[in-house]
């Protein structure tokens, strides 16, 4: 019924996958589908061979029914990812720009629509894996909570963030307590 304590610290991988399914993605419909009223929002009519933007979950259903082709986002491309990988290697202090949910998005897109890929799926996967490891290493070594007031972490991905959030949060909280105690002592 209730939630356990760890759920107030971070989101689980399946919850993140759920959140990522709301990201919008471009598809190339194979057949027409008239306008749909989902009550809270409206999906405009899909026309065959005209690009449309739809939520990822909707794209996946259409894809499974063979009713659309998924257009890969610009960043999900081996050449682009390699330049990111290079930039990532050069700069040890920050994260190169990728969408916040890059891991969840690429997992779903590659699993559901490998055949729609313009380049080599294996190459993209390999580069993604290298990126993932490099960034994780960076997180393990580089992120130092040496400050009780704030830590800036631009460019971090959701999977990475939720992995380190519990420990970072706890560390910063401890530092705050120590700092408060010091201040009391000096007064």
């Amino acid at each position: 019924m209730s939630l356990d304590a760890s759920q107030f610290e971070a989101f689980s991988a399946s919850e993140l996958a759920f959140l990522a399914e709301d990201e919008l993605i471009t598809i190339l419909p194979r057949q027409n589908l008239s306008r749909m009223d989902f009550k809270g929002w409206v999906q405009p009519a899909l026309r065959a061979l005209r690009r449309s933007e739809v939520p990822l979950w909707l794209a996946v259903i259409l894809k499974r029914q063979d009713r659309c082709t998924i257009i890969y986002p610009n960043w999900l491309d081996a050449t682009y990812l390699k330049t990111v990988l290079e930039a990532e290697g050069r700069d040890s202090a920050s994260f190169a720009a990728l969408p916040y949910m890059w891991q969840e998005l690429s997992d779903t897109i590659l699993a559901e629509a490998a055949e729609d890929c313009q380049g080599s799926v294996a190459e993209i996967m390999r580069t993604l894996q290298e990126l993932k490891e490099l960034r994780l290493n960076k997180l393990r070594q580089g992120v130092l909570v040496n400050n009780d007031s704030h830590l800036r972490m631009d460019g971090i991905g959701s999977a990475e963030l939720n992995l380190v959030k519990p420990i970072l949060s706890k560390t910063m909280r401890t530092l705050q307590t120590v700092k408060d105690a010091q201040e009391v002592e000096t007064v």
């Binding site: 929002w41 061979l49 690009r51 739809v54």
Partner: peptide, 25 residues
């Protein structure tokens, strides 16, 4: 060409705005 124009046109941004501000979202 048509699909490229459509993808950058109003249609795309309208979906974005409408979906991301839907009550459930």
């Amino acid at each position: 060409l048509e699909s490229i124009i459509n993808s950058v046109g109003r249609r795309g941004t309208r979906t974005r705005a409408e979906y991301t501000t839907a009550p459930a979202q």
